[in-house]
Design a protein around this nucleic acid. Structure first.
Length: 675
DNA sequence: TTAGGGTTAGCA
DNA sequence: TGCTAACCCTAA
C-alpha cells in the first residue's frame, strides 16, 4: 500500500522531469532486469521490439489486460509511456524508430502492478522498480543500439541477447522479482501445444511456432535488423546443412530441441556443429551421397598425411614421459629438446597408449611406474640399437638417449615437473636386464611397441635405466582417472541442479545426492556437457547474475520450480535417456517438500489450466533434455509438467495454483488478477 | 566458488 | 585420427 502511494508521486515527478530526462526514466516501472529488454514478454508477443501503442490493443487479451491493470493501478506508467512516445516523436522524426525501440519503458506484461503495490511488504521488486531509477543504475552502457538514445538501467550482469534462462534461474528471478525475462516462455495461445512451446525450436526452425518462440526471439533482439541478420544467417546455415533435419522423425526431437533459438548465434554454431556431426550426417541424405569428409578437421587431412611414429620419435616421446610424466603431453611437447614431427598432445597420448597400454590399465601406480620404466628402458635400448645399426639412427639416438648429464637434467626437470606426483607413484623401477647404454641387446620382442608385452623383468637394474637417462622416478600424471558419469549420478545431478541451481559445490556437498565423490567442477562440467544449452541459457549461475539476495531460499525454490521436472524420456543420447527423471519426488523428501511450495508457486502457477495464457510465461524454457521430456506430455498436461516433484494428487495445475505463497519473498504476482 | 576455457582419456 | 567427455587450471 505504501508503495502504491509512494509510486504515484514519484511517477508524477518523473513525468514532470520528462522534458529533461527524455526517456531516461522509462524503466521506472520495469523491475525486470535488462533481460526483459531483450526478451519479449510471453504475454505480449510484440512486446520488446515493437510495442506500439496500437499494438497493445491488438495483442491478445492478456497483453491488453496487463496494461489495463497497470493503468488502473498506476496510470502513471501508461501515461508516461504515452507521453514519452509522443514527446519523442515530436522531437524528431528520425527518432521515431528509437521510440519504437524496446527500451521503452515496459512493464512486464505478467506484472500486476496493482497487485504488487497492494502487497504488504516491500520487495526487491519494489526496490528495483522504485530505487532503480533513484540509484541511477544505468551505468551499464551495454544497452546496445538504443542505449545511445535511451538510458535505461541495465544490470551489468546482463549479457546482450542472452537466451532466456531456463530452469531454476527463471524461477529464481521470480522469487525476488518478476520473471526477469518475459520471454522465458513464449506466449501461449489457447490450445497451443505446450510441449511445442517448451521445446526448443528445432534447427530447422519448423518446430517453432512463428508466433511464439521465433517471433519472440526475433522481437527480443535488440534490433530488428540484428534479428533479421541472424535469421538470415540461420537460414543460410540451415540451407547448407540442416535442411535435412526436417526429414527427421517428427517425434525425434532429441536433437532438435538442442538448438533452440534460431536467433541465437550460439545455437547457430551448434546447428553448424551438429550439421557436421558425423552422427547427424549419417541420417542426412545430404551427406549420404557425398564423399564424405565429415568433420572440418578431417576434411583437410588425408590418409597420405599420416605420419608414422619412428623409433626415434617414439623414444623422444618416452623421454618426454620420463621428464614430464605420463599424461602431461602438452608439457612434453613444450620441451625444447624434444622434437616431434608436428605431433599434437593427443598424438603423443595415443602413441603412448599404444606403447604402454598397461600404464592406463594398472591401478597400482607403483606397478605402472615400474612397467613404464621397463618399457622405457627397452625402447631406448631398442632405439639405440637401431640407431647403431642404421646410420641415420645414431644421431637421433644421441638425442634420444641423454648423456648422464642429460639424465640429470631430466631428473631435475622431473623434479620440477609441473605435476608433482605422489611419491608413491614414482616408484623406482626395475630395469632392463641389460644394461649398458651401448648394449642393444634387447630383443625386438621386447620392443615397447608391444605394449601389451610384459615389461622387462624387474631384474633389470635401475642403473641401467639411469645409464639410459631414465630417471628412476618416472611419474604418472596426477590426473584423476576418468570416471564416466552414471545414470544415477546424472539423475542426482539433475536433482541437485533443481535444488541448488548452479551451485555445484552445494550439489556436491548435498549428502542426499551422493555426489560427494565428484568435484563440484566435475558436476558443473558434466552438466555443461550434458546440457550445453541449458547450461548456457541458465546464465551465470551462481546467482551472481541471476541469484537474488536471499539466494538460498530463492534458488531453492527457483530451482525446483523452474526445473521442469524431467520426465522420463527417451533421449537420443544415451546418457540423457538414463535420466529418466520420473516425476517422483526428489530423493530427499525434505528437499522435495521444501521445493514443492516454491515449485507450486511458480512452476505450477503457470499451469495453463487455471491461469490460462499467462501462466505458461512462468514456465522457463526447459533445458533441452527437459524439453524432450515435455514433448511427451500432452499440451494439457504441460501444466503439470514441471511440477512433477510435487508428489501428491494435487501436484497438478489446480492444486499448485492454490499453493500458498507463504514463503514467497517476492512481490507476489496475483495471478487471479492477471487472468 | 564458479565460469570459461584448455588438456587429456577413451572410444569409434 | 577425430571426437566427446572427464578432468584441470585460473581469473574473477
Amino acid at each position: 500500500m505504501e508503495s502504491a502511494s509512494a509510486l504515484r508521486p514519484l511517477d508524477e515527478s518523473i513525468l514532470r522531469e520528462l522534458p529533461q530526462l527524455s526517456l531516461r526514466i522509462a524503466p521506472l516501472r520495469e523491475p525486470v532486469s535488462s533481460r526483459t529488454l531483450s526478451v519479449p514478454s510471453p504475454l505480449e508477443p510484440n512486446a520488446s521490439g515493437t510495442r506500439e501503442p496500437n499494438n497493445i490493443p491488438n495483442s491478445n487479451s492478456n497483453s491488453g489486460k496487463i496494461p489495463a491493470n497497470a493503468k488502473a493501478g498506476l496510470p502513471t506508467v501508461t501515461e508516461f509511456l504515452n507521453a514519452a512516445r509522443i514527446r519523442k516523436t515530436e522531437l524528431s522524426a528520425d527518432s521515431q524508430s528509437n521510440v519504437e525501440r524496446p527500451p521503452r519503458p515496459i512493464l512486464p506484461a505478467f506484472v500486476n502492478l496493482r497487485a504488487l503495490e497492494k502487497f504488504p511488504f516491500s520487495s526487491s521488486f519494489d526496490d528495483d522498480a522504485l530505487q532503480g531509477p533513484r540509484k541511477r543504475r544505468r551505468r551499464d552502457p551495454q544497452a546496445d543500439s538504443f542505449s545511445e538514445h535511451l538510458q535505461l538501467p541495465i544490470p551489468q550482469a546482463q549479457k546482450e541477447q542472452r537466451p532466456p534462462p531456463f530452469g531454476p534461474f527463471a524461477i529464481l528471478n521470480g522469487l525476488n522479482e518478476p520473471p526477469p525475462n518475459a520471454a522465458l516462455l513464449p506466449p501461449i495461445e489457447a490450445g497451443s501445444n505446450i510441449s511445442q512451446l517448451l521445446t526448443k525450436p528445432s534447427r530447422g526452425g519448423a518446430a517453432v511456432d512463428p508466433g511464439t518462440l521465433v517471433a519472440a526471439h526475433v522481437a527480443i533482439s535488440d534490433g530488428q535488423s540484428a534479428a533479421e541478420r541472424r535469421d538470415t544467417r540461420l537460414e543460410d546455415i540451415l540451407r547448407m546443412s540442416l535442411n535435412v533435419d526436417e526429414d527427421d522423425d517428427p517425434n525425434d526431437n532429441d536433437e532438435n530441441v538442442e538448438s533452440t533459438n534460431p536467433m541465437d548465434p550460439d545455437e547457430i554454431a551448434l546447428a553448424v556443429r551438429k550439421a557436421e556431426d558425423p552422427k547427424n550426417t549419417k541420417a542426412l541424405p545430404l551427406h549420404s551421397g557425398q564423399d564424405v569428409p565429415i568433420s572440418p578437421k578431417t576434411r583437410g587431412r588425408s590418409r597420405k598425411n599420416v605420419r608414422k611414429w619412428t623409433e626415434e620419435e617414439t623414444a623422444t616421446l618416452l623421454r618426454g614421459v620420463v621428464k614430464c610424466g605420463i599424461g602431461n603431453w602438452t608439457a612434453i611437447l613444450a620441451q625444447p629438446e624434444l622434437e616431434f614431427n608436428q605431433r599434437t598432445a593427443s598424438n603423443l597420448k595415443d602413441r603412448f597408449r599404444v606403447l604402454c597400454p598397461w600404464a592406463y590399465r594398472t591401478s597400482d601406480p607403483n606397478e605402472a611406474a615400474k612397467q613404464l620404466h621397463d618399457t622405457l628402458a627397452n625402447t631406448l635400448l631398442k632405439a639405440k640399437g637401431e640407431g647403431s645399426d642404421e646410420t641415420p639412427g645414431k644421431p637421433h639416438l644421441s638425442h634420444i638417449m641423454p648423456s648422464s648429464q642429460g639424465s640429470e637434467s631430466i631428473s631435475g626437470a622431473e623434479g620440477q615437473a609441473p605435476n608433482p606426483q605422489k611419491p608413491s607413484t614414482s616408484s623406482t623401477v626395475s630395469s632392463t636386464p641389460d644394461t649398458d647404454p651401448g648394449s642393444s641387446s634387447i630383443p625386438q620382442s621386447q620392443s615397447p611397441s608391444s605394449g601389451n608385452s610384459t615389461p622387462a623383468p624387474a631384474s633389470k637394474s635401475q642403473t641401467t635405466l639411469a645409464s639410459l637417462g631414465i630417471p628412476a622416478n618416472v611419474v604418472k600424471s596426477k590426473r584423476r582417472s576418468r570416471r564416466p558419469f552414471t545414470a544415477v549420478e546424472d539423475e542426482a545431478l539433475l536433482k541437485g541442479y533443481a535444488v541448488h541451481g548452479f551451485q555445484w559445490t552445494l550439489i556436491q556437498q548435498d549428502s542426499r545426492l551422493n555426489l560427494s565423490h565428484r568435484k563440484a567442477t566435475d558436476l558443473r562440467d558434466r552438466f555443461r556437457t550434458k546440457f550445453p544449452h541449458a547450461y548456457r541459457d541458465g546464465g551465470s549461475v551462481n546467482g551472481k547474475a541471476f541469484t537474488n539476495p536471499n539466494q538460498g531460499q530463492g534458488q531453492d525454490s527457483a530451482a525446483g520450480a523452474s526445473t521442469p521436472r524431467p520426465h522420463p524420456v527417451n533421449t537420443e543420447q544415451s546418457p540423457s535417456k538414463a535420466y529418466a527423471m520420473t516425476p517422483t519426488p526428489t530423493p530427499n523428501s525434505t528437499t522435495a517438500s521444501r521445493n514443492s511450495a516454491s515449485r507450486s508457486r511458480h512452476a505450477a502457477t503457470p499451469s495453463q489450466s487455471s491461469l490460462g495464457q499467462i501462466d505458461p510465461a512462468l514456465l522457463p524454457p526447459p533445458p533441452q533434455s527437459f524439453s524432450e521430456h515435455s514433448m511427451y506430455l500432452p499440451p494439457a498436461a504441460a501444466g503439470a509438467l514441471s511440477f512433477s516433484l510435487d508428489d501428491g494428487p494435487g501436484a497438478g495445475a489446480a492444486s499448485t495454483v492454490e499453493t500458498p505463497w507463504e514463503d514467497n519473498t517476492l512481490a507476489p504476482m496475483i495471478w487471479d488478477e492477471l487472468t
